[in-house]
Design a protein around this nucleic acid. Structure first.
Lengths: 209, 209
DNA sequence: CGTTGACTTGAAGGTATTCAAGCTTTGTGG
DNA sequence: CCACAAAGCTTGAATACCTTCAAGTCAACG
């Protein structure tokens, strides 16, 4: 399947992050490889060095809901209890810094703000999934991705249409149709499959609700 | 509108909760009254003594998404940053113990598990809103309410159909129709509008996905 | 006992899904 | 470097599910 699946190569730290121990090694994950699985014992948290990660759950019949994407610089993996409730996978070739939680050290101060930020994001996403239509969902997604990439006109989408659909609670066909509609309206330009230029930011903002 | 809106009467502690300072007073809120509002300065967290609370966001056109209900014993109100991102309202006559966050005291240890639990719940709710149909959503809701009330056959629903709809991303009509269908199948019995007997627990479990 | 608000039920309509086909891009091997 | 295969994406038509609009029922309360 994946040539490098589960190959984790430790490297010296590339960049120190304030308030986190900077000496942690970086693990590499190839596209599609698993970082952790639902039911696995939790005991670490993770920071994306480069690449992108998807966090998701599955229903018994295979339906998938991606609850979050994590891009370079972002942190994930802390969970309630001792086992993971979700899957985490590298979307592309991805480097992840792993911070093991040791029994003695207390990381509450570092983790609480991260947990609260994740909570706010999840709750805002609930509004999107519960009360917004397809166009509004895609608009919210594009604006969120743009914001997290520094509000440039050009937004990189590291994930497939399938991933976007499973994040927004839509099918790939609907995602594709909305992209086409936004393109025809001149709101966005599809530079390539994984790269979108936001032409009319205001129009997107208006669509978001 | 509400006769007792915003009346907050302090009472001595009714029950001490482990690991939280037990001397906090209890505030009372009448049905529909606001506990805090989006944009307000945050600086406390809350524990429900009795009654029930809804946490929600609004879109500009009035669409509402309830992200969580909180029943007796549960904790809410901690948020990222210094201002509230959500509204909190008493659903019925409700007593709430308020824990003010003082500048000196550090509550990270108490708050982190609560924040992580909230995060897990929100992410599980994302799966419901993103990938489940109306019956599955209502089944998940009823089972969740039952579990939080001690897994009794009789489940009390402190909230209206409107609230349930806004929590599950459905209209009140759809919620009502699903209740009727479950009743006709003999899965539940509508003891009263706000009280449901779970007759076939297994059937509900199966429907949940 | 009548009024009000909440809930239920029915019929019509709309949005997203499903199923199906065609197209584009990417990767692989000759 | 080209040809082909495979995967990912787009587009179209039919269908399904939920919503909207409307009317009617039920329950609580004065």
């Amino acid at each position: 399947m994946h040539a490098y699946t589960n190959s984790r190569i430790s490297l010296p730290s590339l960049s120190a992050q304030p308030s986190l121990p900077a000496v942690q090694p970086v693990s590499f994950f190839s596209a599609g490889s698993e970082i952790y699985a639902q039911g696995e014992k939790a005991g670490a948290f993770y920071q994306v060095e480069f690449g992108a990660v998807r966090i998701y759950r599955l229903l018994a019949d295979g339906r998938r809901q991606i609850s979050a994407f994590h891009l370079a610089g972002e942190t994930f993996g802390f969970e309630a209890g001792t086992t993971h409730h979700f899957f985490a996978e590298a979307i592309n070739a991805t480097g992840v810094r792993v911070f093991r939680l040791t029994a003695g050290a207390d990381m509450s101060h570092q983790l609480l703000p991260l947990a609260l930020q994740g909570l706010t994001r999840a709750q805002e996403h609930l509004l999107v999934l519960g009360r917004q239509n397809a166009i509004e969902r895609v608009a919210a997604f594009l604006l969120d991705m743009a914001e997290r990439q520094g509000d440039l006109r050009l937004v990189e989408l590291p994930m497939s249409r399938m991933d976007i659909g499973d994040y927004l609670g839509l099918t790939i066909e609907t995602v594709s149709r909305v992209f086409t509609r936004l393109k025809e309206k001149g709101v966005i330009r599809l530079v390539s499959l994984r790269s979108v230029e936001i032409v009319k930011n205001d129009a997107l903002q208006d669509m978001r609700e």
